[in-house]
Amino acid sequence: MTTMQRAVLERVEPVAEGAVSLVLRGDGGPLAAWEPGAHVDLVLPNWLTRQYSLCGDPADRDSYRVTVHHDPLSRGGSEYVHLYLRTGRTLEISLPRNNFPLSPAAEYLFIAGGIGITPIVPMLASAVEAGAVARLVYVGRSTATMPFADELRATYGDRVRIHTTDEHGRPDFAALAATLNPLALVYCCGPASMIDTAEAVFPPSRLRVERFRPAAKQFALNSAFLVDCVRSGRTVEVGAEQSVLDALNHAGFPVPSGCREGVCGSCEIPVVGGEPEHRDDIGAPPGRMYCCVSRALSPRLAVDL
């Protein structure tokens, strides 16, 4: 079964200072269905693969919309999109993956910072359409730098609070938590400092977050271990300074990958034996691991490859 789709870059739309939306139309047929919170891998012509949240309408199967913030200090993806990518180009796109799904609730508080608004846009639309009580606190340096700020205010009115730090400083998340309905769910996406603050004040059982960069964590020193690939009957050694992903790729197992930081989920593989040490930020489901960062607590792992 294929894991990639083809789409043509139909439009590039400026949506804020330093941010553009890409409208990608399916090449030859409808694109795969998705739900709010999903993201895709976009394979760029410069051979980089980058992950972007889908921020369009899930009912539109003819096109996807993603938004890219220009970060000159990035690893080259946003720089290429903003300076070199042109309409008419055919691109490969992964099937959507959703590590940030919108759970049913009667009330929601959405918190977005900067480009973290992208997964929140379809979430807010879905919550309002379902008849839920929904609020958005959208934080940015200034409205000029905040994608969709005007569009969101025009569509949702006083459901949306635009908070500019240049004018008002940082928002008071503790005050928001104090007035939160005990049954409400909180969805937060944005800079690491924002997510850290949200995790400090909102009940963990009610909070859902998505990070664009992994949280700082500490683990024991790496050691070498073996990976038994049960379908092929081969064993691959993973060195202490080597990732499982790299070891498998070098051994001839072409495992897909994207972020290589444990936040996108593209390198998921099935584990059928041994004890993995999960080092990702999204929470691998039972019997799976994200092999770009995760390792082994047992001397051997068995995987279905």
Rank of each mutant, 00 (worst) to 15 (best):
M1T: 01
T3C: 02
T3M: 03
V8Q: 09
E10R: 14
R11C: 04
R25K: 03
D27E: 07
D27A: 07
D27N: 08
G28S: 11
G28T: 04
G29W: 00
P30F: 04
A32E: 13
A32T: 03
E35D: 14
G37E: 08
A38V: 06
A38N: 11
L42F: 14
L44Q: 06
P45K: 15
W47R: 15
T49P: 01
T49I: 14
R50M: 08
G56E: 11
G56S: 13
G56V: 08
D60I: 08
R61Y: 06
V68H: 05
H70S: 07
D71C: 10
P72T: 04
L73Q: 13
S74M: 04
R75K: 12
G76E: 12
G77L: 04
E79T: 11
E79H: 12
Y84G: 01
T90R: 15
L91S: 10
N98A: 13
N99A: 15
L102G: 15
S103K: 09
P104G: 08
A105G: 10
A105K: 04
L109R: 11
L109F: 05
I111A: 04
G116C: 09
I117E: 02
T118E: 01
V121D: 05
M123H: 03
A125S: 01
A125P: 00
A127Q: 06
V128P: 05
E129K: 14
E129P: 01
E129V: 10
A130G: 11
V133P: 00
R135N: 10
L136N: 11
V137C: 09
V139S: 03
V139H: 01
G140F: 06
P147I: 00
E151A: 12
L152P: 00
A154E: 10
A154N: 03
G157V: 03
R159K: 12
V160M: 08
I162E: 06
T165R: 11
E167D: 14
H168G: 02
H168E: 12
G169W: 04
F173C: 00
F173P: 00
L176Y: 15
A177C: 06
T179K: 14
L180C: 05
N181M: 02
A184C: 06
L185T: 10
L185V: 05
Y187S: 14
C188M: 12
C189K: 07
P191L: 08
P191C: 09
A192D: 03
I195P: 05
I195S: 02
T197S: 12
P203A: 01
P204W: 00
P204I: 07
S205H: 11
R206Q: 13
L207E: 05
R208V: 03
V209S: 09
V209I: 09
P214Q: 12
A215F: 05
A220T: 13
A220D: 12
S223E: 13
S223W: 14
G233S: 05
E237Y: 00
E237V: 12
V238F: 01
G239R: 13
Q242M: 13
S243G: 14
D246M: 13
L248N: 10
H250V: 03
P256S: 06
P256L: 04
G258R: 07
C259T: 04
C259Q: 09
S266A: 08
V272G: 07
V272K: 06
G274P: 09
P276F: 07
R279W: 15
D280T: 07
D280F: 04
D281F: 07
I282S: 02
P285M: 12
P286M: 09
M289Y: 00
C292D: 03
S294E: 03
P299H: 05
A302R: 15
